[in-house]
C-alpha cells in the first residue's frame, strides 16, 4: 500500500494514478478482511476499486491525461497535512488496543446489540437496519440527493435548434 501511495504521489500520468488507486482500494479491502470487517471490505472493494475507478476513468476521458505542473511549491499544504497526520497518529496511541474487550466502545450499547433481540445473525445488518434505522434512512437520502444533484448539474436539455443530437 505504501509503495502504491508513493507512486501515486510521484506520477504525473493520471491513468496510472487511477489504476493504482484501484489497487490501493483492493489492498485496503484485504486489510479490512484481516480485521474481520467483511461488510466494510465488501463495500470498499465494490465502491473504491470498482465503481469509483470506472467513474474516474470516465472523467479522465473528458480531460487531458497528464497532470499540469503546480503553480507554486506545495510547502504549506505539505506542512498542514503532515502535521494533521502526526496529530492523528499521536491520538491513535491513546486508543485502547485492537480487540481489547474492556475498551469503552464495547461497554456502552454494544452488549445490547450483541444480545441480538431482533434475532438476525449478521449483527452489522441488525445494527444498520434496525437499531440505527434513522441513520440509514438519512444515508439513503444522502445518496439520493447526490444522484439528484448529478442529474440537476449534468443533464442536458434538448435544445430546440439541434434535433436528435442529445437523447434527453
Amino acid at each position: 500500500m505504501a509503495i502504491s501511495v508513493v507512486i501515486m504521489i510521484r506520477s504525473r500520468n493520471l491513468f496510472a494514478v487511477i489504476v493504482l488507486s484501484g489497487i490501493y482500494s483492493f489492498l485496503m479491502a484485504t486489510v479490512l478482511v484481516a480485521m474481520d470487517a467483511v461488510d466494510v471490505a465488501m463495500t470498499e472493494a465494490a465502491v473504491g476499486a470498482g465503481i469509483s475507478t470506472v467513474l474516474l476513468l470516465g472523467a479522465l476521458h473528458l480531460c487531458r491525461s497528464d497532470e499540469a505542473k503546480p503553480a507554486h511549491r506545495p510547502w504549506l499544504p505539505l506542512a498542514v497535512s503532515v502535521s494533521t497526520g502526526a496529530l492523528l497518529i499521536y491520538g491513535a496511541f491513546g486508543l485502547p488496543d485492537f480487540n481489547n474487550p474492556l475498551s469503552p466502545i464495547h461497554q456502552h450499547v454494544a452488549p445490547r446489540y450483541m444480545a441480538n433481540e431482533v434475532d438476525v445473525p449478521n449483527v452489522v445488518t441488525a445494527v444498520l437496519a434496525s437499531f440505527r434505522g434513522y441513520d440509514t434512512l438519512g444515508e439513503t437520502t444522502v445518496v439520493f440527493t447526490a444522484g439528484a444533484g448529478i442529474i440537476a448539474l449534468l443533464r442536458r436539455r434538448k435544445k430546440p435548434g439541434r434535433d436528435g443530437e442529445t437523447e434527453k
Binding site: 465488501m42 465503481i51 449478521n122 452489522v124 445488518t125
Partner: peptide, 15 residues
C-alpha cells in the same frame, strides 16, 4: 443473504 452473512442493501446495490 445480508441477514445471515456479510452484505446488505448498499453492497448489493453497488454490485
Amino acid at each position: 443473504h445480508g441477514d445471515f452473512g456479510p452484505g446488505g442493501g448498499f453492497q448489493a446495490g453497488v454490485i
